[in-house]
Design a protein around this nucleic acid. Structure first.
Lengths: 102, 102
DNA sequence: CCTTTCACTTTCCATTTTGGAAAGTTATAG
DNA sequence: CTATAACTTTCCAAAATGGAAAGTGAAAGG
């Protein structure tokens, strides 16, 4: 049942990051830090993990004279997230029909 | 967004256990071990965690002369799982609409 | 009775994960 | 040339996971 659960994407902070990335082409590091509420170092490490898995791309570029990091899904990352969401959805459906009859 | 994510229920093995419990009144320890594929000791520890959270009840009883452990949700456990599933469902819906337009 | 066996539970260990603080790095700004 | 912004890495500590192996309690066999 949880065969398709992707350990790289399953931790809550990663699910949050991935959900944001699914909805936009690109997000700033600082915006993700606000959304997840974790420290710089922790966000940086989550992004490294996702990046090492080949799931996201990090682009560094200057904006307003300051260095910024833009985060986006790679194609494999988007596919992996879609699969993971599919697994979650299957679980949700199994669970919801059971719960509704409680 | 992940406010309602319950760390006690989120780990994959626990989600699996909870999904089973949502669908039946009671399951045997041995059946859960088959389903989750973890060792006795690991399953026992997951069940302890769920039990300490007040989410499940463990009933020991003899069947065919052998001791068996029956696992079931408590009411708070069922409610907590329903809330967690609700949070997952919200995430799934946010993600799916984004993914569908990829 | 005493030893096995079953069905877990606990302990022992090792590995991995997660998190923050603080130090380090790099690219401007002044 | 120093300060600062925006990360990244290092340093720790705590918690989570997992299996192997030892421990426990009840019942079955001899």
């Amino acid at each position: 049942m949880t065969d398709r659960f992707d350990p790289v994407l399953h931790p809550p902070a990663r699910l949050q990051i991935a959900t944001v990335l699914a909805n936009v082409d690109t997000v700033e590091f600082s915006r993700l830090r606000e959304i997840t509420g974790v420290s710089d170092s922790v966000l940086s490490k989550h992004l490294s993990a996702l990046s090492e898995a080949g799931y996201i791309a990090l682009k560094k570029a200057a904006l307003d004279g300051r260095q910024r990091t833009w985060v986006s899904f790679t194609r494999p990352g988007r596919k992996a997230f879609a699969a993971h969401v599919g697994a979650l959805n299957a679980l949700v459906r199994h669970a919801e029909q059971a719960i509704s009859g409680q």
